[in-house]
Simulated scan of single mutants.
Amino acid sequence: MSTRRRANPEGAMSVGAHFQELRKRLVLVLVGLAVGTVAGWYLYEPVMDYVQRPLTELGAGNPQLNFQTIGAAFELQLKVAFWVGALVSSPWWIYQIGAFISPGLKRAERVHALAFGAVGVLLFGAGAVSGVLVVPRAVDALVSFVPDGAATLLSAGSFVSFYMYLVLAFGLSFLLPEILVALNFLGVLSARTMLRGWRWAIVVAFTFAAVINPVPNPVPMIIQALGLVALFFLAVGVSALRDRAARRRRAPAAVAAAGA
């Protein structure tokens, strides 16, 4: 029996149906990641050429990537393939998040789940692009601390991990409003509760931007933090509209129950 059939007439799902749906979506996410990883394996060389551009184009002491063990190149290719797979399949696994909440929604609300997935792809892409733009500045700033006359020998694995960490962290950070809105649609978090924690949201946004941003210049950190704060309040606004619509739908039923 499908999870949709287990939903009650009001659209709510049982706990067991939620877990079954979650398991299904996780399997689909893993399948998407596997397919993306295979594609990433064949895209390894052009991806590595692009990843190394901050080292070759900025002229910061002519740093070189080094493979320190005999199996390091193979391990790096696996890591890059998985990373590319996560990025390439991001529309798929972000859609699965929207599809997971869809069975618990009324039919009129399911269009919101589709919008949820589409907006999530755009937000993740914007965050990932921001991370890519930050990497050259970060490399230039960090390598500038190398003393004159010293050679810069970088572990290939460490450098690629640094690159992946920034791009994925920026991409995931931009999904903050998606997570909050999803919790609101599931009935876990109201807009009023979110708004009560706005001070903590600002503190977390600036702390996260300070930790994640390797550029010594505070301007990129402040811009990123303000962007995260704006996304937080956008999520609050969307959730408030949804809460108000839900209250309007419940009002006639409450009046009818009181009259009975």
Score class of each variant (00 low, 15 high):
3 T>G: 12
8 N>Y: 01
13 M>P: 08
16 G>D: 13
18 H>R: 14
18 H>G: 00
22 L>E: 02
24 K>T: 08
24 K>Y: 07
24 K>N: 11
26 L>K: 06
28 L>I: 14
29 V>M: 14
32 G>E: 10
34 A>D: 01
37 T>G: 15
40 G>L: 10
42 Y>D: 09
44 Y>T: 03
48 M>S: 09
48 M>F: 03
50 Y>I: 09
51 V>I: 15
52 Q>S: 11
53 R>N: 11
56 T>R: 14
61 G>D: 15
61 G>M: 14
62 N>G: 04
63 P>T: 08
64 Q>T: 11
66 N>I: 07
66 N>T: 09
67 F>Q: 00
68 Q>I: 12
71 G>Q: 08
72 A>I: 06
73 A>T: 00
73 A>M: 09
77 Q>A: 05
78 L>H: 01
80 V>T: 07
86 A>R: 02
87 L>E: 10
89 S>M: 11
90 S>I: 14
92 W>A: 00
92 W>V: 14
94 I>K: 11
95 Y>H: 03
96 Q>D: 08
96 Q>H: 15
97 I>C: 11
101 I>W: 12
102 S>V: 12
104 G>E: 13
105 L>W: 05
107 R>I: 09
108 A>H: 15
108 A>T: 14
109 E>M: 12
111 V>P: 06
115 A>G: 15
121 V>R: 00
123 L>G: 05
124 F>E: 07
132 V>W: 15
132 V>N: 05
133 L>T: 04
135 V>R: 10
136 P>R: 02
137 R>V: 03
139 V>L: 05
141 A>W: 10
146 V>N: 02
147 P>N: 02
152 T>F: 13
157 G>Y: 00
162 F>C: 06
169 A>H: 07
172 L>E: 04
173 S>A: 15
173 S>E: 02
174 F>E: 00
180 L>Q: 04
180 L>G: 05
185 F>L: 12
186 L>P: 07
192 R>G: 06
193 T>C: 06
200 W>M: 05
202 I>V: 09
203 V>E: 03
204 V>Q: 00
206 F>I: 11
206 F>Y: 12
208 F>N: 01
209 A>V: 06
212 I>Q: 02
214 P>N: 01
214 P>W: 03
214 P>K: 01
215 V>W: 04
216 P>I: 04
219 V>P: 11
220 P>E: 04
223 I>H: 02
228 L>T: 01
235 A>L: 07
245 A>Q: 08
247 R>L: 11
249 R>C: 09
259 G>P: 04
